[in-house]
Design a protein around this nucleic acid. Structure first.
Length: 314
DNA sequence: GAACTATCCTGGGTGC
DNA sequence: TGCACCCAGGATAGTT
């Protein structure tokens, strides 16, 4: 399931291939993959053909390609989306939903195939808006030359919080928001308006690393515990990124169709019935938010705040 | 307004 | 072998 590390791997693969390339063709094989495209802004293909792509940018699980206009091609992989680079004439990938044909100044013609089994992902062309804080809209890997697109963000992504490996991410703002959440900590981690890029897998892994029960009320965490959790989130995301992301099956691959290796490093997710690496207690899987939650019932205990100790982290 | 739930969607796995 | 059913989960609209 593509979460932040998997999307970043895709972004890194796309960047050299699409930057400065011009879109010369668009083929939509399944209109459902345009669910997030607002037709009022114009037909999908019409807004792309003839436009030059300026970069590949990511915030959380959203990826976008700023165009030489006031718009961007927004890509969300959903659960099973893949962006694959192919040579023109290559056999169609299974579940191919959309194909872009690009002309790159040095690489020549190239196909960008959007493949999606479950059609939870999408492509859309959206208008760019200025970021509310004036800071870069997302991570592009380009720290130097300032361009207009850098402090802009697609309108449909503007409500998404910054992700924890974004240099502009504010830990203080995150702790403050957490302290006001009456919900469980895992639900808070999955709330993309609070902190982005974390999905079910990395939420379980971070909570395991920080020894926090998934239903622990977010507001009950001390500042020290919240700091530990944020550090665990960052460590796990960086490790997953270094290992090319998490692949269980063919549902996640990079732009060249290669799988990541982080699935071998998982300590909690998908390990129900296996012993905890710390204490040997069997990892448990419980139903949570229409999905699974994996944890060690010994290391990750639900604790009640002591009288007088509850309240926002200080 | 916040918290929570249902819905979208389909290939693969399992059981009969 | 073939069929029916269940499972996975990100984003968001709808409900409480």
């Amino acid at each position: 399931m593509p979460e932040l590390p998997e999307v970043e791997v895709v972004r890194r693969g796309l960047q050299p291939a699409v930057t400065n390339a011009v879109v010369t063709g668009v083929e939509v094989f399944d209109e459902r993959s345009l669910r997030r495209h607002a037709p009022a802004g114009g037909a999908f293909a019409e807004q792309l053909v003839g436009r030059r792509i300026l970069a590949a940018v990511r915030r959380g699980k959203f990826l976008w390609l700023p165009l030489e206009s006031d718009r961007a091609l927004v890509i969300h992989l959903g659960m099973s989306g893949q962006v694959l680079l192919r040579n023109p004439g290559a056999a169609d990938d299974r579940m191919l939903r959309i194909r872009l044909t690009l002309e790159h100044p040095s690489r020549g013609e190239l196909w960008v195939n959007f493949v999606d089994q479950r059609i939870f992902g999408s492509m859309a062309v959206d208008t760019m808006v200025a970021t509310s804080d004036g800071l870069p809209g997302g991570y592009s890997g380009m720290a130097t030359a300032h361009a207009v697109w850098q402090d802009h963000i697609p309108g449909q992504v503007a409500h998404i919080a910054r992700d924890p490996i974004d240099p502009s991410f504010s830990a203080r703002a995150f702790f403050t928001a957490l302290a006001q959440k009456k919900t469980g900590i895992k639900r808070a981690l999955l709330d993309q308006n609070l902190i982005s890029g974390i999905g079910n897998i990395y939420a379980d892994e971070a909570l395991f690393a920080a020894r926090i029960h998934y239903e622990q009320p977010a507001a009950s965490l001390s500042r020290a515990k919240a700091t530990t959790l944020l550090a665990a989130v960052r460590t796990i995301l960086h490790r997953a990124l270094a290992e090319g992301g998490t692949s269980f099956d063919a549902q996640y691959v990079n732009v060249n169709g290669q799988a990541g290796y982080f699935a071998h490093s998982l300590e909690a997710y998908g390990r129900q019935g296996h012993p905890c690496s710390r204490c040997g207690t069997l990892i448990v899987r419980e139903q949570f938010m229409n999905r699974g939650s994996h944890f060690c019932p010994h290391c990750q205990r639900l604790t009640r705040p002591r009288p007088g100790s509850e309240g926002p982290p200080r």
